[in-house]
């Protein structure tokens, strides 16, 4: 038996075997091990944060990551952005009939490694099987629970004109890496996805009183977060193209595909807004972390009517930045 069968989702002996032999040993931890109907956590001090995300990725494996790694990073990072310390994740697997068990194991292995990297255990889970339907092989939902330290309030309402905008590293790597495995594009790149859990990177910033806001620029790219900022604060944002930490390879790959790197997805970056007084400290702490080596101050919040996100281009001209309309589609021509 090397493939997932409908019976693996039936709740009988096969289900138990699948879990006990293939899934659980890879995820073992004290909270999960009792395999109760629910995970039991001690009541934390502070407020509780809850977030959920579903993962549908094709192909399942790509340079720098896979659906398992994304499923941990996405949810951990959503908690991280609010300043919450993640306590645990639930894991719901929806498997397609016919999926190679070996593929499942690879995904779970990666998921387990990423959970360990983040220091966040999988504390409860569920597995179902759906009929073969040219689906995605594996769909994953993770829900994350976290605790928000007393007094921490990271909401756009606290942003002021004059605050600085930090990007924690080179943008667009995830989206470009995914495109390189898209069928029919004939695009190869040395780039790998940046998918990474960011709780460790963000943790040393939480004590800074000037920290106002963090968001991970996933599908809408950095441009999407800047557009959010403008909408949610009614203020303007001015970004300096020359300050963007763009690596030559990202620049060229984007240029080649006709994409604006600000519009391309990331899975391991944060856009941070911080008061000027704390910006140097924040930058130093970010750069001391392996995931923040290329962190840079890329711009500033401005008072302005009408509220706009603008880019000062490399040659000193101005243009506006908008949320991309749809998924960035390449144009090789």
């Amino acid at each position: 038996m090397s493939q997932v069968l409908m019976a693996h989702g039936g709740g009988g002996e096969l289900t138990r075997q699948l879990l006990v032999e293939r899934v659980l040993p890879r995820l073992a931890n004290p909270l999960l091990n009792p395999l109760l109907d629910s995970a039991i956590l001690e009541r934390p001090s502070g407020r509780v944060c809850l977030t959920t995300d579903s993962f549908v990725v094709q192909p399942l494996f790509f340079p720098g990551g896979d659906i398992g790694r994304l499923a941990v990073c996405g949810t951990v990072n959503d908690l991280t952005c609010l300043g919450a310390r993640p306590l645990g994740l639930s894991l719901a697997l929806i498997l397609e009939e016919g999926l190679e068990l070996e593929t499942l194991e690879r995904v779970i292995d990666s998921l387990a490694r990423t959970a360990e990297e983040a220091g966040v255990p999988i504390i409860t889970g569920d597995t179902k099987v759906i009929e073969r339907q040219r689906g995605d092989g594996i769909l994953i939902n993770t829900t994350g629970i976290g605790v928000l330290p007393e007094g921490l309030d990271l909401r756009p309402a606290r942003i002021n004109a004059g605050d600085l905008v930090i990007l924690t590293g080179v943008p667009a790597e995830h989206g470009l890496a995914i495109l390189s495995v898209r069928e029919g594009l004939g695009f190869e790149t040395a780039l790998a996805s940046d998918a990474a859990p960011l709780n460790g990177l963000a943790a040393p910033l939480l004590a800074l009183p000037g920290l106002r806001f963090m968001r991970d620029p996933t599908r809408g790219g950095v441009a999407g977060v800047l557009a959010d900022l403008v909408e949610e604060t009614g203020l303007s944002v001015e970004i300096e193209e020359r300050a963007l930490p763009l690596s030559p390879i990202v620049r060229h790959a984007s240029e080649m595909l006709g994409l604006d790197p600000l519009n391309v997805a990331n899975e391991g970056k944060l856009v941070i807004v911080i008061a000027p007084a704390d910006a140097s400290t924040a930058l130093a702490r970010l750069r001391a972390h392996p995931l923040g080596r290329h962190a840079a101050i890329i711009g500033q919040i401005k008072p302005s009517t009408p509220p706009l996100a603008e880019l000062i281009t490399a040659i000193g001209g101005r243009r506006i930045i908008q949320r991309p309309m749809a998924e960035a589609t390449p144009r090789i021509c």
Binding site: T313, I315, G317, R319
Partner: peptide
């Protein structure tokens, strides 16, 4: 001309 900011200069 738009994207690079040349028009603006």
């Amino acid at each position: 001309l738009f994207r690079t900011g040349v028009r603006d200069l």
